[in-house]
Simulated assay, not measured.
Amino acid sequence: MAVFTAVTDTELAHWLRDYDLGDVVELRGIQSGIENSNFFLTTTRGEYVLTIFEKLTAEQLPFYLDLMRHLASHRVPVPDPMPRNDGALFGLLHGKPAAIVSKLEGKPELAPQVEHCTEVGQMLARMHLAGRDFTRDQPNLRSLAWWEETVPTVLPFLDDAQRTLLASELDHQRAFFASDDYAALPGGPCHCDLFRDNAMFAHANPAPGHEVRLGGFFDFYFAGCDKWLFDVAVTVNDWCVDLATGALDAPRAEALLRAYQTVRPFTPEETRHWADMLRAGAYRFWVSRLYDFYLPRSAELLKPHDPGHFERILRERVAGSAADTLHATPHRPCN
């Protein structure tokens, strides 16, 4: 993503001796995002993405890489990690863990329509079901415990209304997470960051009956084991909103949820707590954007996101909690 760690052509050529990927043709930094150093890598064998992990440790990384390999083996379109000559899925570059994955076909759709949301909803449900037999377990590292740790660090930068909202919503989510209904929610490996810029659409040769074709999901480095409903809420909060106001766009939200539930219908507990989870998804990203905005790290290419966007979304979700439950009407799976 943002380039924190620069790599010279000589360093890259030396590092790639441990791979069977051919010679380097081009290495180009990817500017979006703020967590890792990502590059488009073209070799004489194909196109890939090289990631240098700025925060994740060598002990944490196998969860993410093994999850992508597991999903790819279950025909979920995700980047497939490239093994080194010794079979390992990552090595050290500049003393930091680094990996190469396959590059997905297509490009992001930053102005999604109903048909894009339909494709995303169906594939998200397929991804959740495909992860049921994944054997590694790692919690979502940006969940409640991280919120409780991070909120005090950003409070000094905020006005009274913002501090009140952060505190009151944290209390609401603590109570929700402690409830029996929350414990009953189904879950497993989740993407946890499935924004519209983390999916590719291939528009050439669309599938019969579809105007668009999903190329796949990528950037799994916030993934963790969580409630599936949280993953759906995070996705809806980005794919199905009016960017100016943060309000839900009903046709897109209904299309995504209907498509998801044709593959995996919601449980009664999920239906009851859809509004709570929409709030949880908004809160997670407001807190992280506040942190990245007010306590940034230096980077060669760094563009922190506006935290005000998710503040607006959270306020909309809190104000519209009763109405938001209407978008969770269960649908029967297709025969």
Rank of each mutant, 00 (worst) to 15 (best):
R17V: 12
R17I: 04
R17N: 14
D18C: 02
Y19K: 07
Y19W: 14
Y19D: 02
D20Y: 06
L21T: 10
G22R: 01
G22A: 05
G22M: 05
D23N: 13
D23T: 14
D23H: 14
D23M: 09
V25H: 12
V25Q: 12
V25K: 14
V25A: 12
E26W: 03
L27A: 03
L27D: 05
R28W: 08
I30K: 12
I30E: 01
Q31I: 11
Q31W: 09
G33A: 09
I34C: 13
I34P: 00
E35P: 08
E35K: 01
E35L: 05
E35T: 13
E35Q: 15
N38H: 08
N38V: 08
N38M: 02
N38Y: 06
F39M: 06
F39A: 05
F40K: 07
F40E: 13
F40P: 10
L41Y: 03
T42A: 14
T42D: 12
T43E: 06
T43N: 06
T44R: 00
R45T: 14
E47P: 04
Y48V: 06
V49K: 07
T51M: 04
T51F: 03
I52N: 04
F53A: 03
E54V: 08
E54D: 13
K55Q: 13
K55N: 13
K55E: 15
L56Q: 11
T57I: 10
T57Q: 09
A58N: 10
E59V: 15
Q60E: 15
Q60S: 14
L61I: 07
P62R: 03
P62T: 07
Y64G: 05
Y64V: 07
L67E: 00
L67R: 03
M68Y: 01
R69G: 08
R69C: 05
S73M: 11
S73Q: 15
H74M: 10
H74E: 07
R75D: 15
V76R: 09
P77W: 00
P77Q: 02
P79I: 05
P79M: 04
